[in-house]
Simulated assay, not measured.
Amino acid sequence: MRLRHVLLAATLLGSVLPALACRMTMALEQWPPYVYRDAQGGYTGLDLELLRAIFKEAHCTLVTLPELPTARRQLLFQKGGLDLMPAASDTLERHAYARFSVSYRDETVGVFGKAGAPAVPHHAGSFAQLARGKSTLLAPKVGWYGADYAAARPALEKNGRLNTFGSFRQGILMLDAGRADLLLGDVLAVRHEARQQGVALSTLPFLALRAPVHLMLNARTTSAADLARLNAAITRLEQRGVLAAIRNSYAAP
């Protein structure tokens, strides 16, 4: 009889307690203007603003951990030490350890020249045209920047017309110093760094890449219900124009 009373009490208690809280952790990595420190030392940026809006709408808690290098973040995520990574591409191999939200913004990659530079081919409308021309190019050392760039890269390398950089700050400084005619990179990141360095840019009339990015949830530490909760929040915010307003405030393409 006593056991029955304990079980009944536990059942009644469970019926009045709130559902298990939705709480996810992510490690920060500075990637201006998506994530960076403001003048007061706090973290801000396009991705953080979008994530905070999404998590608030989903009634979930987003816990941000101290900064980690990209490789360590990826490894920790795969080992189950992090629940979430933003700005992720949905690839088949990642489905072994992750689940993906619907897209919450696009990744865009463009080609830029220094404003007023005579060698900038403003008429070029594709990487194929650039590869057939004479312009030299600066590009990030790592990352995927679209099939057109991948196809043109061997010819650029063969002719000694391609140099690489490790950070956009380095890339902008190299462009400003005349180390190349053009620079390839994430549109918002390049524009942000150019403003920081006071370098005026011109933009070629084509995008090298436009692709959706997603929230990547750890399959070991999150549930299908967590994913559904975030997806529903993204969908509602898109319908109300909230996410578009945040993206527009950063002039996202």
Rank of each mutant, 00 (worst) to 15 (best):
Q196H: 14
E193G: 08
A219K: 13
G198V: 00
L207D: 14
A208H: 10
T203I: 12
L217W: 04
L217V: 04
L204Y: 00
E193K: 10
R191T: 09
A194E: 00
Q196V: 13
S202N: 08
L215I: 11
H214Q: 13
E193M: 15
P205M: 01
N218W: 01
P212W: 13
L207A: 15
A219N: 08
A194F: 01
H214W: 06
A194Y: 01
T222M: 06
R210Y: 12
E193N: 11
P205D: 06
R191C: 07
L204P: 00
P205Y: 01
V213I: 15
T203D: 08
T221L: 03
T203P: 04
L204F: 00
L217I: 04
L207Q: 15
G198I: 00
A200C: 05
P212L: 13
A200H: 12
L201M: 04
H192P: 02
T203K: 12
L207R: 15
L209Y: 09
P212Y: 14
V213Y: 03
A200Y: 05
T221V: 03
M216H: 07
G198W: 00
H192N: 14
A200D: 10
A219T: 02
A211H: 12
F206W: 12
A194M: 06
P212K: 10
L209I: 10
A200V: 08
S202T: 13
L217Q: 07
V199W: 04
F206T: 06
Q196M: 12
T222Y: 00
L215A: 03
L215F: 06
L204M: 02
L215Y: 05
V199Y: 06
L207G: 07
R195M: 11
F206H: 11
H214S: 01
H214E: 05
L201N: 00
T221C: 06
V213N: 07
L201W: 01
H214Y: 15
A211W: 09
A219F: 09
M216R: 09
L207Y: 12
A208Q: 07
Q196P: 03
R210V: 15
A208I: 04
F206G: 03
A194S: 10
A194V: 02
A200K: 14
P205S: 02
F206S: 08
L201H: 08
T222D: 02
L215M: 10
N218T: 01
S202G: 14
Q196G: 12
R195A: 13
V213P: 01
L215H: 03
L209C: 09
T222G: 05
F206Y: 15
R220D: 12
R210T: 14
H214T: 04
A194D: 00
L207M: 14
P205R: 07
S202Q: 13
L217H: 01
